[in-house]
Amino acid sequence: MLKFKFLLWILNQLLQRQIKSNPDCARYVAGKELIFQIRTASGVGRCYAIRDSAIRSSSGLTANPEFTLSFNNAAKGFEILSAKDSQAAFLRGLGSKDLTITGDFLEVMWFQGLTAFLQPQKVISPYDRTAF
């Protein structure tokens, strides 16, 4: 449970850093207003608010999020959210019902675009012939 809570907290910190340091990410969130939450079925979670080109979060849940990512339990939430193959893990979680999404699916897709800024960028070496 503690690892899941820490992961939700660090997600906010990492996104804040990207918004401040990556101009593309800053443009992506500019003008966006969104409230969403990530939680477990037992009610443990975190609420996130994107407003004024910034992201803030607080522990606990909100009554009217625009979408909710709900995991069966904290262990599954941690496993899916920290997976190296994040999109595939997300889809596996949906297929196995370890992850349920409620709310505005278009906002979920927008959020997936935001989390893409957290992925390491591949640096192509001029000596790497497999990149071409």
Rank of each mutant, 00 (worst) to 15 (best):
M109A: 15
Q112C: 03
L11H: 03
I80Y: 00
G45F: 12
L118F: 13
L14H: 13
A75R: 10
L91N: 15
L91C: 09
V123D: 01
K84P: 00
T62V: 15
R27C: 07
L34D: 01
E79Y: 08
I19F: 13
S82Y: 03
R92F: 07
G43P: 02
E66D: 05
F117W: 07
R92E: 10
K5N: 11
T115V: 15
T62P: 04
L99P: 09
S125G: 03
I35Q: 13
N72G: 00
Q112L: 14
C25P: 09
A49Q: 09
I80K: 01
I10K: 14
L106R: 13
D85G: 02
A75W: 04
T115G: 02
N72R: 02
L8M: 14
A83F: 03
A30Q: 02
W110N: 06
Q121A: 09
S57T: 02
P120W: 08
R17M: 01
V123C: 00
I35G: 02
K32Y: 01
F105V: 11
G77F: 15
R17Q: 07
A89K: 05
I55G: 09
D98Y: 07
K20V: 06
K20R: 14
I124S: 04
A30D: 07
I55E: 10
M1H: 12
T68D: 04
T62C: 15
F6S: 13
Q16H: 06
I50E: 04
S58K: 14
S58M: 10
N72C: 00
L99M: 11
G103Y: 13
E33M: 00
G113T: 04
A83T: 02
Q121S: 06
T115R: 14
T40P: 04
D24P: 00
M1K: 13
I38Y: 08
I19G: 08
E66M: 15
A75V: 12
D104H: 14
T62I: 10
K76P: 03
N64Q: 13
N22Q: 08
Y28Q: 03
A131S: 15
L11D: 04
T115Y: 02
A54E: 10
Y28D: 02
Q87D: 09
A26P: 00
I19T: 12
S125L: 10
L81I: 11
R51A: 14
F4Q: 05
V123E: 01
L94V: 05
G45E: 12
T62N: 03
A116C: 08
G60V: 08
L11T: 11
Q16M: 14
A74Y: 00
D128A: 04
R46L: 01
A49H: 02
G31E: 05
C25T: 12
R46M: 06
S42A: 12
G103M: 12
R129A: 01
L94I: 07
A89R: 06
E79D: 12
P23M: 03
R92I: 09
R39T: 04
T100M: 12
P120Y: 05
A83K: 08
A41P: 00
A89F: 00
N22R: 06
E79W: 03
K84T: 05
Q37F: 01
A49R: 10
Q121D: 04
L118M: 10
L91F: 15
P65N: 05
F6H: 15
L81Y: 11
D52I: 01
A89N: 01
